[in-house]
């Protein structure tokens, strides 16, 4: 009886709903065009990359199956593992540089003073430029003969100005350029999230005599927890897009100092025309990206991410 009653009531509600809601409902046909398009040009490639990883293909003609050749080659290819290491270092460095900067700037920009609005609109200028335009502008700044690097290089330990020509310097350049390009976006995330923190929390803390630093530590930071996770995941997944910056800025060099995994894959595929082997590296990229995101989701209570994103 106890279970029958709510069931009956639920049925009743549904019936009532049906009687008032006669609005037309669109069918599956409405999503088919978008779904087909997406499957052909994004879903299918993901499957194809797995298939291609078992083939040998030079970019022309037909891919030929060669079993596990590419995979066994991967295991003994030290250049891939080297690239993986550089990717990891670059990703961590970029994260460590961008997160505190974006957090600090975002909290600052969340204030509603007029001068902040003007300054913020300048902050976001890099967001408008293409990666190509940004990388090329920086490349001219870093030119060891004529650029800013030639004049200011000696202040940061490069008396000859050739920052981009030294292994460590080149890696640093990529981090700086990536930060220049992407910190504004993450600032935007933190700004939006900070504005949603209830003022009453700060008022209560003020009454209790907490200063700015303590308020930042005990109110702002915990309240921004979800945003920090969101922004970090986006940075991790986004580290694949550093490829464009690396390709233009350093081409993976000097030597292989900035040869990150996507760069390695691109060169293997479109310079050496070993598309099959490059597909193995591509699959590794997919697996790595997915695994990292899942790990973060698992260990940080990512379920609330959507509500944080909706605040933008």
């Amino acid at each position: 009886m106890t279970t029958a009653l709510p069931a009956a009531r639920r049925g009743g509600v549904r019936a009532a709903e049906k009687s008032t809601d006669r609005a037309a409902r669109p069918g599956v046909l409405w999503v088919v065009p978008a779904a087909l398009f997406f499957m052909v040009f994004a879903g299918l490639p993901l499957l194809l990359v797995a298939v291609l990883s078992f083939t040998s293909w030079n970019g022309l003609g037909t891919p030929r199956f060669n079993g596990l050749d590419n995979w066994s080659r991967l295991l003994s290819d030290s250049s891939v593992w080297q690239s993986l290491r550089i990717s990891a270092i670059l990703t961590v460095l970029c994260w460590a540089v961008q997160t505190p900067l974006a957090l600090l700037l975002g909290v600052w920009a969340a204030g509603r003073q007029r001068n902040r609005a003007v300054l913020s609109s300048i902050f976001f200028l890099p967001l408008l430029m293409s990666t190509a335009a940004i990388a090329i502008t920086w490349l001219t700044l870093l030119d060891p003969n004529f650029g800013l690097a030639a004049k200011w290089g000696h202040y940061i330990g490069f008396p000859d100005g050739n920052i981009i020509g030294s292994p460590r310097g080149a890696l640093g350049c990529v981090v700086v350029v990536v930060a220049w390009q992407f910190v504004p976006f993450h600032t935007l995330l933190y700004q939006a999230a900070t504005r949603q923190i209830p003022q009453s929390l700060y008022d209560a803390a003020t009454v209790d005599g907490a200063g700015r630093v303590r308020q930042f530590r005990h109110i702002t930071l915990p309240q921004l927890r979800n945003t920090i996770v969101t922004s970090s995941v986006l940075m991790l997944v986004g580290s694949l897009t550093y490829f464009e910056t690396v390709l233009i800025l350093t081409g993976g060099g000097p030597g292989s100092a900035t040869n990150i995994l996507p760069q390695h894959m691109y060169m293997t595929a479109f310079r050496d025309y070993q598309m099959g082997y490059a597909s193995v590296i591509a699959l590794a990229l997919v697996a790595l990206g997915t695994a990292l995101s899942l790990l973060i989701v698992r260990f940080s209570g990512f379920a609330k991410m959507r509500s944080t994103l909706e605040g933008i």
Partner: peptide
């Protein structure tokens, strides 16, 4: 489509080129 959000374009350039 939600799952598709996670597909990195960089990793699919070879099959896209093939297609």
């Amino acid at each position: 489509f939600l799952a598709g959000l996670a597909i990195p374009a960089q990793a699919t350039i070879i099959p896209v080129y093939l297609l």
